[in-house]
Every structure is written in C-alpha cells, then in structure tokens.
C-alpha cells in the first residue's frame, strides 16, 4: 500500500473541513447513510470524482435542479456504480497519458447501497475489481431497498421484517442470513477491504483514506442505520451503529493483502469478551425485529445469536491465522 504515514486527525480537523456532501439534501431526519457519506467525503485527499448507483443517497442528493455534491458526480443506473468507476478511471488514465489531464491524479469513488452492491450491482463490482481499476467502492449498508420502500436485499439480516419479508403468522421476517459481502470481496484478492461504523468516526475516516491510497480497487463496507426502514428513533442512528459493533453483529476490521486485523473497537471486545453485548440488546429497540421477541420466535433470536457468535469466532480465527 502507498501509505507511508498514518493520517492523524482530530475532531477539530474534520469539523473545519467543508462539507463535500452539502446541506440541503433530502434524506430523512436522522439518516445513517447521509451521515456516513458526509463523513466519507471529509476524508478525500485531493481531486476526486464520485459515481453513485441509483438509491436513497443518489436520489436525495441530486433532485434537479439542485445538487448536494461539491465534487464532480455521475449517476447512470442502479447496477453500474463499479462499471462507471471503470470507465472514469480508464478515461483519466488515457487522458493523463495524452497530456490532457490537468490534475496529477484524480481519485475515483464509487458509492452504492446494499441493493447496488450485494445484489444488482454485484456482477459489475466483481468485474471491476477483477480488472484491477484504481477506485474505492463504498457500500453504505442500510440492509434493505429503502428507497423503494424497505424491500429485502442480500444484505438484509435474518429475522428482519421488510415489505417483501413481512413478519407474518407463518414467516418471522427474512429467513436467510446476510450475504458475507466483505469475505466475498476479500476472496477477489483485493489489497484493501474494510468495515466501518459511523459511531467510530475516526476509524471510518482513516479507512476511507487508506482505501483511496491503495493503487487498485479497495472496498469499504459501511454500516448505515435507516430509521425509516428499521423502525428506529431517528435520534438513535449513531447509537445503533455503536451497538452493532459492541454486539459483534457488525465487527469493524481491515483486511490488507489478505491479512485480517480487528480495528480498535472490535479488538477491545476480543481482548475482553465479557464486554460483548448480547445481540438482543442491539435488536430490541428496532421495529423491524419486534416480532422476534414474541415467545414463538425465540428460536430466531437464538439462531441470530448463534450465527453472530460463529461469525465473530471465525473472524478472530482469520485474524490469528493471517497474523
């Protein structure tokens, strides 16, 4: 990786940086993705082009004639953010070769939600990564198709009620577990894959910066609570992004050239397992999981806890095995 020095940042540094994702966007109050992307854009290191998949963040930031983007920004379709990044990066490369690019270097960031990453955009993402384009792919994972009204995606966790996996008398929400997207990206042999949660803002910003510094594709999985879709209190958005890490539902870690490292918030839990919170602590305030607390669905709660523990144990194993 091209990183020579750790990017040292304070809250003041970030507070003083202008917003690249500008105010006046039309995300819901307490929107996790809007907050996460606002932070992401505070970590850019120079000239940057952003391309975004169709989805909540694309829609709320680009309602004509208004834009919330202070950097060049392109949207084409739902499944195309990584393919767009390929074309932009290829164009920048050849224009530079021909002496037609003013900038010494331009970073390319592709943004997509869980639908545009786990599902419809996955083929384009996998292809772009295999081809080795130099770009950072930022997945803001709010765990369902929120823009169209809370339909399940490959990123929706087990038990969550969505409008296509409603909690009914026979089916207790989504029956399948979440697709392990970061592992799948690691399997591509990428130089940099990381997960981050907005409560830990410094960790998130540093990961964006590291992802940009990689010369080649990098993948960042952001946890992004959605008050509207999760049926949570908008004021608790950041709180849930903390609880998800504390319960190991969403551990934060980095994989650099196949080497797994837990980031500090998750490392502290690994070092002091008694600090690990039960998943129920994370699930209980969320309307999408309310039905799981009915006695007949206890088996679902148990399974979610079991699966979370298993994934957490496996992650720690990978950290040891690749140390």
């Amino acid at each position: 990786m091209a990183t020579t020095q750790e990017w040292k940042i304070t809250a003041k540094d970030i507070a003083e940086k202008p917003d690249i994702l500008m105010p006046g966007h039309r995300a819901c109050a307490g929107c996790g993705p809007a907050h996460a992307l606002r932070l992401v854009m505070k970590a850019i290191r120079g000239p940057t082009i952003v391309t975004e998949a169709t989805g909540c963040m694309e829609v709320v930031t680009s309602i004509y004639p208004y834009t919330s983007w202070a950097v060049p920004w392109l949207h084409t379709a739902f499944e195309t953010s990584a393919a767009n990044a390929s074309g932009i990066e290829a164009a920048l490369k050849v224009l530079k070769r021909k002496g037609k690019l003013k900038q010494e270097h331009v970073d390319v960031i592709a943004i997509a939600g869980d639908g545009g990453t786990f599902d419809i955009g996955f083929q384009a993402l996998s292809g772009a990564v295999e081809r080795g384009h130099d770009f950072l792919f930022v997945l803001y994972d709010n765990e369902a198709y929120m823009n169209t009204g809370i339909q399940r995606s490959g990123g929706t966790p087990m038990g969550a009620a969505t409008t296509t996996t409603p909690a009914g008398s026979v089916m207790p929400g989504k029956l399948q577990h979440k697709k392990p997207i970061a592992d799948i990206m690691v399997a591509h042999g990428m130089e940099y894959v990381a997960s981050a949660s907005p409560y830990y803002w410094k960790d998130l910003l540093q990961k964006v910066r590291r992802g940009l510094e990689v010369e080649g594709p990098a993948f960042l999985h952001l946890f992004a609570p959605c008050p509207r879709g999760w049926r949570t209190d908008p004021a608790k958005t950041i709180n849930y992004s903390k609880l998800a890490v504390e319960s190991c539902v969403f551990p934060v870690y980095e994989v650099v050239n196949g080497k797994y490292t837990l980031s500090t918030p998750s490392k502290l839990i690994a070092l002091a397992p008694q600090k690990k919170k039960p998943v129920a602590d994370y699930l209980k305030g969320q309307g999408r999981y309310r039905h799981l607390f009915a006695p007949q669905n206890k088996h679902m709660l148990d399974e979610i806890q079991r699966w979370t523990d298993e994934r957490w144990a496996k992650l720690q194993q990978k950290v040891e095995q690749t140390a």
């Binding site: 809250a11 105010p23 966007h25 606002r38 932070l39 950041i238």
Partner: peptide
C-alpha cells in the same frame, strides 16, 4: 465544544466556527 454534534449531524447543520 467536543464537536461530536458537528461530526454526527447527517445534515452538516451543526457547524464549528474556528
């Protein structure tokens, strides 16, 4: 003035005036 309100606002509606 720990600035957490500035950092956690999804809108950029809380601003730090250095």
């Amino acid at each position: 003035t720990c600035l957490m309100c500035v950092l956690y606002c999804p809108e950029g509606a809380v601003r730090w005036r250095p």
